[in-house]
């Protein structure tokens, strides 16, 4: 009789890499449905194109690098989907293909694949496009041909151009329910929040980064708002617009590019929140979330050095016989 021999532990929780990615995708599903219902076929076109490009690019590049193909683990699918959800629905097909391809190649695989990317792959692709062809990421132009039941202006551009007077027309409940212009899935604030809470409950993401991201946004925007409420928007407006919600739960929490110890996570979250509001208020860009996350990604190796004090367990006298 042959017995199997292996090293301990002999049990496993059975939450695998693929299951984690599928859970992320599941959590994004409400936002995907929102995008389809709000923008129709153009949204479907962008999402399928982005996902297909990402998966194919992942397979090709791994073949080229002579590494095992891991497309079934859902990582490329997730990157493509997240990339699509922060785009406006009107972008041309080549724009989506180039962006999604860049996410996978420059964002992820070039650094050694899953787990080794120093920056969030989705945001790398997005940032390259944003700087190269800024015109296509204009949310106001994107909805020009639509007839929707909410104001067809990107709230953050309004804020940038006209201060808090222009945004007084936005009702917070509408913003929460996704009745706003923005990334095709990112605008569905409530649905993203539900997805994020699902991930928290499944313990797939830890609460520190989203919570302190929100704290950073609220504190920093409160500072501006209290100093001059005629020019600056209130904290709630900042929380409910742009990419804050999707960034909080889905972008900032990317495993490889965020710190792994608690104190690092807290500083990381706070940093993104504060930078987001500073970029929104003082830079030329209407929304600062993505650049804020990319900047804090660069600090991750440093934040990981915050001492995660090993608690000595070796004790002077133990009898284990």
């Amino acid at each position: 009789m042959k017995l199997v021999v292996s090293s301990p532990p002999h049990w496993h929780e059975k939450l695998t890499v693929s299951k984690i990615h599928y859970n992320f995708i599941l959590a994004l599903l409400p936002a995907v449905i929102y995008a389809i219902f709000t923008y129709g076929m153009p949204a479907v076109r962008v999402m399928t194109l982005a996902v297909a490009t990402a998966v194919i690019a992942d397979i090709l590049i791994r073949l080229a690098f002579r590494k095992p193909v891991t497309a079934t683990d859902g990582s490329a699918f997730l990157i493509g989907l997240l990339f699509a959800l922060i785009l406006p629905p009107s972008v041309p097909y080549w724009f989506v293909i180039i962006g999604s391809f860049l996410c996978i190649t420059i964002g992820k695989e070039i650094f050694g694949g899953l787990g080794s990317n120093p920056l969030n792959p989705v945001l790398v692709g997005w940032a390259i496009l944003h700087i190269s062809w800024p015109g296509y990421l204009n949310f106001n132009l994107a909805v020009a041909n639509y007839n929707l039941d909410f104001p067809l202006h990107y709230p953050l551009t309004m804020l940038k151009n006209g201060g808090s007077e222009l945004i007084s027309g936005f009702n917070f409940l509408d913003l929460l329910l996704g009745k706003q212009v923005g990334g095709m899935g990112a605008a569905a604030v409530l649905l993203i929040l539900i997805g994020g809470i699902y991930l928290l409950l499944r313990k797939i993401i830890s609460w520190e980064i989203p919570f302190f991201f929100a704290v950073g946004v609220v504190v920093m925007s409160a500072v501006f708002w209290l100093s001059n409420s005629a020019v600056y928007a209130n904290p709630l407006f900042h929380l409910l617009t742009g990419n804050v919600m999707i960034g909080m739960f889905f972008l900032a929490t990317d495993y490889a590019s965020s710190p792994f110890n608690k104190w690092g996570m807290i500083v990381f979250g706070l940093g993104i929140g504060v930078l987001t509001v500073i970029l929104r208020t003082l830079s030329v860009y209407p929304d600062g979330v993505i650049f804020a996350i990319l900047i804090m990604n660069l600090f991750t190796p440093l934040l990981d050095r915050i001492k995660n004090n090993p608690k000595p367990l070796a004790i002077n006298h133990i009898e284990r016989r």
Binding site: V17, I20, G112, G113, L114, G115, S116, S206, Y255, F260
Partner: peptide
């Protein structure tokens, strides 16, 4: 024994 994905 896959690559570490740094989930923490």
């Amino acid at each position: 024994n896959n690559q570490c994905m740094n989930c923490g």
